[in-house]
Structure formats: C-alpha cells, structure tokens
Design a protein around this nucleic acid. Structure first.
Lengths: 196, 196
DNA sequence: CACATCTTGGACCGATCAGTTCAAGATAGG
DNA sequence: CCTATCTTGAACTGATCGGTCCAAGATGTG
C-alpha cells in the first residue's frame, strides 16, 4: 500500500479542480476531495497541500488552462473584431457544452464568494477574473479597431461572457446560451459600421 | 427576558437576508444569523424556521422586493425601448451603489450554488432568476418593439444585468459598472434603427 | 395578586469539519 | 537480502456545524 506514489499528479489535480468547480470551496470537504481524487487525507496533505493551498492551485490551473484556450482562439481569429469576439465566446460555449465538466466558471464562482475567501485566494480570483477582458482588448487593439472601441467591445463582451457562467449554472441549454451570444454579436455588429 | 416578542420581524428578516446575501448559504452559520438578527437560536427556530426555511423566505423576500423595483421602473419608463432598458439597469446599479447592501445579487449567487442547494431552494432561485428577463420582455413588447426584437433585447440585457452582479462582487466600481451599462445601451441603440 | 402562556438564554446533542499523527508496509539502493 | 525512505490508511483532536430541549422569567388575563 505504499512505497512510490500510486497516483498521477495531473489526474488528481484535475479531479480536485472539477470538485471545487462543481461544489465550490465552502461545500467541498476534504472527504469530498479524497473521494474525487482517490487519495486519502495524508496523501492530499503531503502531495497537494492543505485545502486553501490546493484550492489556490486549482484556481491557477483553471485560469492557465482556459486562458490558453482564449489566447489560442483569439490568435486564430485574426484581425477582424467580430471574428475575435465570436472566437472568444466559442471558447466559453465549448467549455460549457462539455458534459465532462461542471457548468459555470470556477473563477466567476470564486469571485462571487470573495467575502468569505482567504485574502490570498480572493486576490488570485480577482486577478484571473480581469484577464478575459484584457486578452480580448489586446486582440481587438491588435486588429483594426480604434482603442476606444476595443475597450468598449472588450468590456461588453467580457460582461456577457460572465453572464454565460451564471446562465449555464441556472440550467440554460447550450442553444439558449448560443442565442445570448448571437444577440450580443449582432448588437456589436450594428455598433461597428458607423465608426469603423 | 421574555413574555412578548422583543424584536421586529421585518427587521430580523432583512438582517438575515443581508447576511445570506453577503456570505452565501454555505458560509452562513446559525451563529452568524443569530448575531446578524440579534435573536438567539431558539427565537430563530420558533419564529423564522430552520436554516433552509429561513433562506427560502429571504430568497423570496429579495425577489419580491427588487422585482417590485424593476416593475416600477419599467412602468415609469414607458414605451421607449431604450428608456426601458436604461431604467432596468438603473435599478440594478442603484442597488449595487447602496453602501448599506452587499455587492452582487442574492439570486445570482444562489443560482451559482444550485448543485449544493436543496431542491426546493434551487427551484425558487431558478424561478426568481428567470423573472428579470420576463419582466423586461413584457415591458418591451408592450412598447413599440417587435416581439422578436423584444425577446432579443431582453435576453441580452438580462445577461448583462447578471454580469453586473459578478463584476460588483469582484470589486468593480460603480463607474465601471456604469460603463458596462452605457456600452450595452449604445450597442442596443445602434442595433435598433435599421429595424424599428 | 395569582396563574397560564409564551419568549428567551444557554446548555446540550450527534455529526461533520479541517488538520495531525503514526504505525504498517511497499519500494529502491546497496 | 537488508535497511533506510517514503507513501498510505486509519484513528484521533479540537472546533464548529445545524438542531433540540428546558428552565427562567416576563407578560397579559382574570
């Protein structure tokens, strides 16, 4: 029953991340984490740290993984602002549509829980939270959109993106979420011509 | 120390509501509720019910109170679609700007916690959650907006409205929230003319 | 003034929480 | 094969959880 580690670290971290993502920090006990990862408390503590540390690692893991997806999608989309916004939303919609993953967004949920999180965790959540808008703004600025419009587009799209997390958590279907995105893109498309 | 009730029911319910609103269901203990309301456990149980029941009452109280504010604002705004949307957002912005009240939105937070809430509470949260969009859609339909556009506007505005809760919880300033709203209204305004 | 009624404070319950400790035992190096 | 090293399972700790119970005592009625 011992000797060399009997589990894969990446798999265990993913399992812990999904558990926190589904149930939130407060409603995830060490027994839940033990069940989800297949490790017992001793192994969790020695290999993954205490609950706070582990949650921080999961938060950063989530931010890095999906942040990379946003970056890749925006880079693929190129210079057209609407294509960039569309690509941006598609990353979110794809994540939500994945039946293997919980609904919502770990970062958005963590931000909502800021008043009861430790300062360190809250700081990470807030930092990760701001990145989506900054990524999109940078992509739009790199394209052929005036800075002012890039900021406005990014603010608006990031806001709608956050709402997708709430809506999916409320049980909205992928089709309903797609409608929200389409309406948003439509509104942005109409706002574009008189300026660009 | 006893005899007739020594507290005001409405005040106590408001205090409990604010406590749940600030810290969420999971992170609110009976001691927290006791401290917030000034009542002790016995009085809470005999007068307000158990934790689940009390939370349900607070959720309904919140939905009724702010639902009424949305109704009143939309009714005051009249038939102009943009005025209606503006009035809709103003209710949210005013609530968030009130320093006496927690950031965010009790319903949005509850919806995010659905996987760990009791079925009864989850059902109430989901029902309350859908009302904003329906109120707005009804107001827009009553105005001079085609049904299809009314639905699209309502979907979009309700989504942005939800994001305001997340953003405020992340510490966004009232000015930043106002920017999100202004950008949204601007986009909707541009989407309007070619159709209406 | 006396009595029945009802609120209140605080002690108490079993369950569960995060976190610690340690012996059992599997492994790797010599 | 032997031993030092490290993981693992399980028991344990003190704190806190939601919920219950009951005596103390203030009130309204007669």
């Amino acid at each position: 029953m011992a000797g060399r580690k009997q589990f894969d670290m990446e798999t265990a971290l993913d399992a812990a991340m999904v558990q926190f993502w589904r149930a939130g920090y407060a409603d995830t006990s060490l027994d839940d984490l033990s069940r989800a990862t297949g490790l017992n408390r001793s192994s969790i503590y020695s290999s993954l740290g205490d609950k706070d540390t582990l949650f921080l690692r999961c938060l950063d893991r989530y931010a890095a993984r999906y942040g990379a997806k946003y970056d890749a999608a925006l880079s693929r989309a190129g210079a057209d602002p609407l294509a960039a916004v569309r690509a941006f939303f598609d990353v979110t919609l794809q994540r939500i549509a994945d039946p293997e993953l919980p609904d919502g967004c770990l970062i958005a949920q963590s931000v909502m829980a800021i008043p009861v999180l430790s300062p360190a965790v809250a700081a990470h959540a807030m930092q990760a939270f701001g990145f989506q808008r900054l990524r999109l703004r940078a992509a739009l600025k790199a394209g052929r959109l005036p800075d002012e419009d890039a900021e406005a587009f990014a603010v608006h799209a990031a806001a709608v993106n956050q709402s997708l997390a709430v809506l999916s958590r409320a049980g909205a279907s992928p089709a309903q979420l797609r409608t929200v995105v389409d309406v948003t893109i439509d509104a942005l498309a109409h706002a574009l011509p008189p300026r660009g």
